[in-house]
Design a protein around this nucleic acid. Structure first.
Lengths: 194, 194
DNA sequence: GTCTATAACGAGATAGAC
DNA sequence: GTCTATCTCGTTATAGAC
């Protein structure tokens, strides 16, 4: 059974989210419209408003789904036995996969547009970064304890640097249309932790 | 003589650029309008169109001025004798100063919106990052040569990581309204190069 | 160099039929 | 659940007076 997109389900709300997500990740939340999504799905804007009352509600659904998917990916990394460096490499690959599809991280994109977002969207967004850093902090602490990772400062500080560096590496790589630029930065970052 | 803003000159085009720049750095290029700038300067939108034909032309002027100002700041760092680590710290401070004013780096913001920009804007933007990395590459190579900096990989790779990490640290710090978050990431980054 | 006025378009959203 | 039709507003941009 052919299944496209990342959401398994082929129901209308999911299809709307799939299209909107790609548009936001490529162009930004303030540069996509209901008309864009409607045209691509061959439905009318009114149909979209039936499923998502307004742009803010659509944005919240987008963020919630993205954060949940990311959390699942982190759980999947934790499910397999691996050294801390390998877990970090797997983490960086999550970002690389998004970039390879020509997209910015949804949350990195929305972070840039933060001041124009609704309160609910803001809360989910900051939560995303906090959760990511908390996961990284655990991996980093374990790695340092096991002797597989070496860094100065706290695990929390290193976690913050990793999130920042990966988001920034995606941000800068996209204008150059050059995934290798991201890979080089990620490799350089992780090499500094060995 | 009282002088506000960063542009020395108090002529109309400069004032327009000052206001537009702040709006773009806080809200994004696709979330500010001629009406916003006009209202703040107590002039009409038509007056703005006299100085900058369209939004794209205004954006080009914005980017050119920002890039020139940044280049001046790098020249100023080079003008004084300092160790490579001190130069890197001064470089990171350029970003910190922008963030302390509640702003994202203009070029980081526009990098997120890259796919919606005009060709001329795109060219100036990528040039900005290339120039920054070239400057960093020189500082890094010198520092390694002098033994004041230590890192694996090429100077170019390390330069790319620094730009990415600082841009990303700004991006992530803003949603938290927390400059300390940026400072911690910058410190952690530079500590890894000692 | 700045104004008033307005054109032309697209965005977000709603009412009500089917 | 999707449609047609419509509304209102904001945005970019221009013409022409002062």
């Amino acid at each position: 059974m052919a299944r496209r997109g990342q959401s398994g389900d082929g129901d209308t709300p999911s299809e709307i989210l799939d299209v909107a997500e790609r548009l936001v990740q490529r162009r930004g939340f303030n540069a996509f419209s209901y008309a864009d999504v409607a045209a691509e799905l061959h439905v009318t804007k009114a149909a979209l408003h039936y499923h998502f009352a307004g742009k803010a509600e659509l944005g919240e659904a987008l963020l919630s789904r993205y954060a949940a998917r990311f959390a699942d990916a982190l759980a999947a990394i934790d499910a397999e036995p691996a050294t801390a460096p390998r877990k970090l490499a797997a983490y960086a690959d999550l970002y690389g996969d998004v970039l390879r599809d020509g997209r910015m991280c949804l949350c990195g994109m929305l972070a840039a547009e933060y001041q124009t977002l609704s309160e609910p969207m803001r809360r989910i967004l900051t939560r995303f970064f906090s959760d990511n850093e908390a996961w990284l902090e655990r991996v980093l602490a374990k790695g340092r304890e096991e002797g597989t990772l070496h860094f100065t400062g706290t695990s929390g500080e290193a976690a913050g640097l990793i999130v920042a560096a990966l988001e920034g590496a995606m941000l800068v790589a996209r204008p150059f249309g050059d995934v290798a630029r991201f890979q080089a930065a990620a490799a350089s970052l992780l090499a500094g932790l060995l």
